[in-house]
């Protein structure tokens, strides 16, 4: 659904960020840049929990009095339900804080249009293989702490199965809970396997921990291998052909999902600029 241009509003993309790994916030800035180029908002900014500018500083980033806030997170959970509202002083979907009105949208990862993004990523990483001979595995962290992130992945699996993408088999898998990504070859029913990590940014999970679990990296070493791991596709391993993609959030079209969340917000609350 196309979004109504908002020439008087600002967009605030909220990410987690990291005190040690600046790569982790690159996707957020890329998404901001992509949206900025489309000229839909007066201003587009990012803010973070663990990087500058902080969420508390976000109020000072813009003099727009109408601000859309989109959490660039893969699921609802502690951050989107507790930390972000507390930091931005939001009390509901629309909150006015010292003269500025914030519209709080849902996180990108729960939007149905993520499905298209996953399929696009899977095609990009393995362009020449036939989905009919391929298992698509969407993988995440999976812990007791945030059941929502597991649910977000399961929802995507269901949506892809229901779509006409034609994959022989689609399944979820996790680092820390059943079904385990380390057993990818047992989960896969086909000779080809595509694994897409359901994270916003590439960090230790996607370029180190999961590759070790998949068996494409020998052991947890220095984080130096970084993006190298995505460049050696396909991997011939455990009698299968494995294609491993970078984190879904690094996909340029995630910018469209951010805009989709805003369009949905407007539809729900009939906010019009």
């Amino acid at each position: 659904m196309p979004i109504t241009p908002k020439p008087h509003s600002a967009l605030l993309i909220v990410g987690h960020g990291s005190t040690e790994n600046p790569d982790s916030s690159t996707p957020y800035f890329d998404h901001a840049d992509e949206i900025r180029r489309r000229g839909l908002f007066k201003e587009v900014h990012c803010c973070f929990w663990k990087e500058e500018p902080s969420m508390r500083e976000a109020w000072y980033l813009t003099d727009c009095t109408d601000i859309y806030v989109v959490p660039d997170f893969i699921s609802e959970g502690y951050f989107t339900q507790d930390v972000i509202p507390r930091e931005l002083e939001l009390t509901g979907p629309t909150t006015t804080v010292r003269g500025k009105t914030f519209h709080y949208c849902l996180p990108v990862g729960v939007h149905p249009s993520m499905t298209g993004l996953i399929l696009r990523r899977a095609k990009e990483v393995a362009p020449d293989i036939d989905p009919a001979n391929t298992t698509l595995i969407i993988t995440g962290h999976g812990t007791g702490l945030n059941q929502n992130s597991t649910k977000a992945i399961r929802d995507q699996v269901d949506l892809i199965i229901a779509s006409d993408a034609g994959y022989a088999h689609v399944t979820d898998a996790y680092m820390e809970e059943q079904p385990f990504i380390a057993k990818w070859d047992e989960l896969a029913t086909t000779p080809n396997v595509v694994v897409v990590p359901f994270f916003i940014s590439d960090g230790l999970h996607s370029y180190q921990d999961i590759p070790v679990m998949l068996g494409i990296e020998p052991e947890v070493g220095p984080a130096a291998s970084q993006r190298e791991v995505f460049r050696h596709n396909p991997y011939h391993l455990r009698e299968k052909t494995l294609y491993y993609s970078s984190a879904i959030g690094t996909e340029r079209h995630l910018a469209d999902v951010i805009l989709d969340q805003i369009a949905d917000f407007d539809k729900e609350l009939k906010v019009r600029s």
Binding site: H45, E52, P53, E57, A58, Y60, T62
Partner: peptide, 12 residues
């Protein structure tokens, strides 16, 4: 804003 995040807005 990239060099000094939010700095202008904070001082303003």
């Amino acid at each position: 804003d990239h060099f000094y995040p939010a700095a202008l807005g904070l001082v303003a």
